[in-house]
């Protein structure tokens, strides 16, 4: 008579259980995990690249015109997000970050929304140059090309 798994069975008796007791012992996500979105409005330049690359269209932007400049609001609705991280990869200023936080179970839909507002000031108008100077500059430019 043979017991093919007897050795394994005896070994397993003295082993710890392999269960991760999650709510008691918190588990950290692995390096490079793409979880909850962080948005830094102070770094954003409103280029709109993230909206262009977002496949499900979870990023929306509203622009309000105020006296100080354009008031721009970015909304990231994580209920529609694929967590592909393309928006963060394409952002030229690193204003979007996908953190390792995976606690995204909510009872209220609004908790999934990440939004940020910033005011983009209009550039100051350049001073108007006198007519003669402009002509001189054009002449100089023409001379260089020759």
């Amino acid at each position: 008579m043979k017991f093919p798994y007897l050795k394994e069975a005896i070994k397993s008796v003295f082993k710890k259980p392999s269960t991760e007791i999650y709510p008691i012992v918190n588990k950290e996500a692995p390096e490079g995990y793409r979880g909850k979105i962080n948005y830094y409005p102070e770094k954003c330049v409103n280029c709109g690249m993230c909206i262009r690359v977002c496949a499900p269209g979870c990023i929306t932007r509203t622009i309000e015109k105020t006296e100080e400049g354009d008031k721009i609001t970015f909304n990231f609705y994580q209920g529609q997000c694929t967590f592909c991280s393309l928006c963060a990869d394409f952002c030229p200023r690193g204003a979007i970050e996908l953190t390792k936080n995976y606690h995204l179970a909510v009872t209220d839909e609004k908790d999934l929304l990440v939004s940020g507002t910033f005011i983009k000031k209009l550039p100051p108008k350049p001073p108007v140059q006198p007519q003669q100077q402009v002509q001189n500059q054009q002449n100089q430019g023409a001379a260089k090309t020759e």
């Binding site: 999650y22 979880g35 694929t82 995976y102 606690h103 179970a105 909510v106 009872t107 839909e109």
Partner: peptide
Amino acid sequence: SIAGCPPKPEA
């Protein structure tokens, strides 16, 4: 509602 694509088992 649990967000994630897919969500982690812990979530």
